[in-house]
Design a protein around this nucleic acid. Sequence first.
RNA 1: GGUUCCUUAGCUCAGUUGGUAGAGCAAAGGACUGAAAAUCCUUGUGUCCCCAGUUCAAUUCUGGGAGGAACCA
Length: 311
Amino acid sequence: MKRKVLVIAGATAVGKTSCSIAIAKQFSGEIINGDALQVYRGLNIGTAKITAAEMDSIPHHLIDTHTIEESYHVKSFQEEGRELIEAITNRGHLPIVCGGTGLYIKSLLYDYTFSDQAKDEDFIIFLGTLSNAQLFALLKQVDHKACETIHPHNRKRMIRALEMAHLGDKKSDIIDRQEHKLCYDAYLIGLTIPRDQLHQRIEQRFALMMKQGLFEEVEGLVKSDPNIWERQCFQAIGYKEWSDYFNGKATIAQCGEQIIKNTKRFAKRQDTWFRNQLPMHWYDTQTDDWQKRIMSDVEQWLQTKGDGNHG
RNA sequence: GGUUCCUUAGCUCAGUUGGUAGAGCAAAGGACUGAAAAUCCUUGUGUCCCCAGUUCAAUUCUGGGAGGAACCA
């Protein structure tokens, strides 16, 4: 029988965190963070990370597990997430994945496979010297099928596919070998709210972040690490935008505008992902009874036998 | 009060020697299998401020009106 996993997903600032706490309390759950950037210690305000007080003694996992010098990847998330689901289930608790990183959540729930092969840095450096057209031509030779889904301008994807082929397992072959079915008896909750209201919430939340000391947090990180701008974690919205300020190219207000704009775009991409990539059950947080409906739907789902046919 | 200039997409502005219009930004939609808060793709009908005149035809020319800007009193 498949393990039960509850997922709470949706765009940034819809209210996933408070929803997850309410559900965890009701069904004795433990929360697995599904946000790519909340694993980094020190990135707190800008990632809207849950505070110890907000956790309300609900166990949380995959938060603050990495330093800002480290890099985190889907593969690690998938491995650690699966181990956690196992452990939490064995404890008699309900695993609840809560977050907004679509790829992470999908790779955890489905049979995505990532090889163990080590990187060939020299090869990647070589690929970096090629033009887009050259990369595409090369990919066409080694993995013709992958070309169908990778746009010839998307360097990152072309380089990765070429790397996979170089290491001996083509991207298209790996995908063909998968069943593309849920590995768990998962119930996916998608939180949503009309776009214009989400935009308002994003603006309000940014103002709150500034009040809570976002700028000071960034300033502290900049002072503590001379290479901070090259760190993977500093491609996060709410952090990367400040480089213009520290270079003297923008004011604090201008950086703030940029952060709000990027957050709105990000929220749109998240919506698109969850809408089209995963079998979500949507709940509009504008309706009065959305929490009640979630509680009763989850209750019902918990009583079914794990056949994985939800969604 | 006078003179000159301005009014076109959500915003900033091009433009049409008269044949109903297009850039940037914003926005919307989409893709996504080891950076994913990343990376990449697609999308422009709008009373061309209002009214009247000239004209086969006016957003474009003429007159009037409204709103705005600068300068002069």
